[in-house]
């Protein structure tokens, strides 16, 4: 009986130590050099409405022959954002084709994630919807690359709102298990001039790059001008 308790204690200690290491290590803060011909699997969360528009503006700035394939993560039932992603893909593919580039730029997929919290949702049921959302995120970020042979996301762009916290935690599951995990880049919405959003406040300590779009944020994040 005693040995069982000790075993359990030891296991808990190992887990806590692993969590500490995961949190303290700035998970490969030095990214390895990539050659010009290498590609990155880009994942982007489209958080609906203004968040989706901003996230797609950010994606449109990137070189699609370098960031391929692309995965758009949309909230369940948000067909408008999915549609906007398809429109952006068509536009980019058309402009690449007109340049006669022999690069496969048109590779993308759209995945849906259950919402962590619906508008006007009863606070008591939020834990359940959040868990559902988390499980779907872990599936896409952690398991799907191993089960179906898809490539792991190399980089994940986040712009809010709440559900992207769940995606970040799913990324930390990879880091905890020592699996490849995406770099997390959070760009605070253009709408936030002086005060961070709740999502921003939660994610600032755990993402790899935390970017704001206004200079008056009091040093809370890096600022490179307006990005959308």
């Amino acid at each position: 009986m005693h040995s069982l308790i000790w075993l359990a204690l030891a296991a808990i200690c190992v887990i806590i130590a692993r969590i500490c290491v995961t949190i303290i290590t700035p998970s490969g803060s030095v990214t390895r050099r990539r050659s010009h011909t290498e590609t990155c699997h880009l994942a982007v969360f489209l958080g609906s409405g203004g968040h989706s528009s901003e996230a797609l503006s950010l994606v449109s700035a990137l070189d699609f022959s370098r960031y391929t394939p692309r995965t758009y993560l949309v909230s369940e039932g948000d067909s408008l954002s999915a549609q906007k992603a398809v429109t952006l893909e068509r536009l980019k593919t058309a402009s690449a084709a007109s340049l006669h580039l022999g690069v496969p730029v048109g590779r993308y997929q759209i995945l849906t994630i259950p919402r962590a919290r619906h508008v006007h949702q009863n606070i008591l049921t939020v834990p359940f919807t959040t868990i559902r959302s988390f499980l779907a995120s872990v599936y896409h970020v952690t398991f799907a690359p191993r089960l179906s042979g898809d490539s792991t996301f190399d980089v994940m762009l986040l712009n809010g709102p709440g559900t992207c916290v769940v995606l970040c935690i799913a990324t930390y599951v990879n880091r905890f298990l020592g699996l490849p995990s995406p770099r997390l880049i959070y760009v605070e919405t253009f709408a936030r001039v002086r005060v961070l959003s709740l999502t921003g406040k939660l994610l600032r300590p755990i993402v790899d790059r935390f970017v704001v779009q206004w200079p008056d944020m009091g040093g809370r994040g890096e600022y490179h001008g307006w990005l959308v």
């Binding site: 990155c40 190399d154 790059r209 001008g225």
Partner: peptide
């Protein structure tokens, strides 16, 4: 709209020259 700053930010983060 100018995507240059964000493109450079992500490229640098991902290790591209």
């Amino acid at each position: 709209f100018d995507g240059g700053n964000f493109r450079r930010l992500v490229d640098r983060e991902m290790g591209f020259e």
